[in-house]
Design a binder for these strands. Structure first.
Lengths: 333, 333
DNA sequence: GCTCTAAGTGCAAACGTTTACATCTTTTCT
DNA sequence: AGAAAAGATGTAAACGTTTGCACTTAGAGC
């Protein structure tokens, strides 16, 4: 990068005002007379002046940039959340620095630290767990954080989610009322807070309360082939109804069953807990717990803008409504 | 944001050296004695000092940040490209500012300008067209640009692609040799350079050279429902083999055909030109022109790092190998 | 006509780094 | 032993803004 070609100084000189006045014009401060403003604007246009956001950031201590921490860019669940975030960010003129943390070249807290060093004004966090070092770094720099589609162990940070327990219970009820006796839960990360503190407990309670025998929780089922390969085990365990947290895994299970000549939903009912494009595009289409992903992202970002402006936020743990959408992977009745 | 709690000054004072020395330690400059270095490092650790990247950016004129311009975050094609970019960016310690431009709140060149104002060291551009104002802004600020998975009308900018013409011709050949007589091309954006200058001409030439009658190019087929709704028209036009640029549209067509009781590939052969997860997950799985999306992203980012360092770049228009992967949506022979 | 207020503007000090240059030591070479 | 080279450190000027404060001017109120 070279030295900047045209700076606020050049504009000031050309418009015969001080740089302070140019700055005021640029920032829409109204303590500038109409004539001066017009003259400055004309010069800005003529010289193609564009303010240097880095210098602005240093001087004003606001970068109008937010950090986005996401496990995996190619996971549609996060992509749809991100889209909601992105739209609201654009509306409020924030830029987004995105970092995915599934890549293990760097540890989570290093990634976060590098984001904080960039002086982001706030962070939206979508990963499963928030390491302690990271939480401390956030507090130390006083950077607001909102968790989107995930939750912190001790609810220390603002969050936007759905009511996972209620959703899962409702889904399990659906399976039970369809006459299924052997219900299982298939999750990706066992140590994800949402799973560990919401989904798995909700499942266990449900099984116990309804005397459905031994609980079956399958963990570490993260992608298509994990799901595909899990299916034989499900058969062996006599499972006839499942809730799967990741829809790519659901599809793996679905295809595995079909390839084995089984009937969905007759032999196995499947409900997927994250309804992306994928779930509605496969055949049979998957019955889903439909999370309002776009809205969750949008609400999270909107909340973050408030936190960044030190505005009052009435509720920092927002639960958005979900919907249980029946498609073809459960019996239609 | 508050004033930074601990700065390079504090470290300097505490370690009894000048800030220049601290800076040298931080930046790994080796003109520092072992003892001094250790002392400084100890203080850095003790005070939790973290360099302010904004100040670094202003002083050094390098932000170690690159801009990523993408039409739509939830399109797996771009997500997979982005993943390749992201991994290499991490490797070279660049952060990524991502901006999607499908949202029409802001015009393309405004988005780009806002990125340039942030003083990104380089840009990877994945959108279909590069407006002139944007091209000029890039040149004015001397910011290197690499196009990934797309191309500029006049090849003014570095790019990483596959050989679209060759790939499409090969795919059309496959359809023709399967005995299909009425081949069509289904594209999203007609004015995308890749379509306008590569795919459509390749298709038209092929039809002409092989005396396959009237060409059928369907444009503006961008999403699932566009594809779904297009199918009846294909039937009406007697189409029996298609190449579809977007795989989400392919899936729409596929499902529409199946819902209409047709057989794929017997009644209609489908080849999709962007092989994401989606194409392999539906049944029948789609035959694809498999672009090495991850690698394309990675190569683009690697090239950008060279351009940003003013290193020699031997070839600025890289074509990576593709693969025609036969699955179930074409006849198996 | 005089004081007071407000609007419009400029001055200059921040913001937290990097880096060219200068200075002082120490080592190496003859 | 003396000169030259190399190594270690410090000084201070950038980088391009924002912003608190001070100043000027002009109109309002009396």
């Amino acid at each position: 990068m070279h030295k900047q070609e045209v700076t606020i100084y050049d504009v000031a000189r050309e418009a015969k005002v001080s740089m302070a006045t140019v700055s005021r014009v640029v920032n829409g401060n109204n303590n500038v007379s109409k004539e001066t403003r017009d003259r400055v604007l004309e010069v800005i246009k003529r010289l193609h002046y564009q303010p240097n956001a880095v210098a602005q950031g240093l001087a004003s201590k606001r970068t109008t940039t937010v950090g986005l921490i996401v496990p995996d860019l190619t996971n549609l669940y996060f992509a749809e959340l991100s889209k909601g975030i992105d739209d609201i960010a654009l509306l409020y003129k924030y830029n987004i620095i995105i970092t995915s943390i599934e890549n293990r070249l760097m540890k989570e807290d290093q990634v976060i630290q590098s984001l904080l060093n960039k002086q982001v004004d706030g962070v939206i966090y979508m990963a499963n767990r928030l390491p302690n070092e990271a939480a401390e770094a956030f507090k130390r720099t006083n950077t607001p954080v909102v968790l989107a589609g995930t939750r912190n162990n001790r609810d220390e940070f603002a969050s936007v989610t759905i009511d996972y327990k209620k959703a899962d219970t409702e889904a399990l009820n659906l399976l039970m009322h369809d006459g299924k006796k052997n219900l299982a839960l298939v999750v990706g990360d066992e140590d994800a807070v949402v799973n560990g503190e919401n989904r798995i407990p909700a499942y266990n309670e449900f099984i116990k309360e309804n005397n459905l025998g031994e609980p079956h929780v399958y963990t570490g089922v993260k992608d298509y082939s994990d799901g595909y390969n899990l299916y034989p085990q499900l058969v062996k365990d006599g499972i006839d109804g499942i809730i799967v947290t990741r829809d790519i895994s659901s599809v793996g299970i679905l295809n595995s069953a079909i390839d084995a000549g089984k009937k969905i939903p007759e032999d196995l009912e499947i409900i997927t807990a994250s309804a992306t494009q994928l779930a509605s595009v496969v055949r049979p289409a998957l019955t889903t717990i439909k999370q309002p992903l776009y809205d969750m992202g949008a609400v999270a970002m909107r909340m973050l803008t408030k936190l960044m402006n030190n505005e009052e936020v009435d509720e920092t743990h927002i639960e958005l409504p979900y919907e249980l959408v029946k498609k073809q992977s459960t019996l239609n009745r």
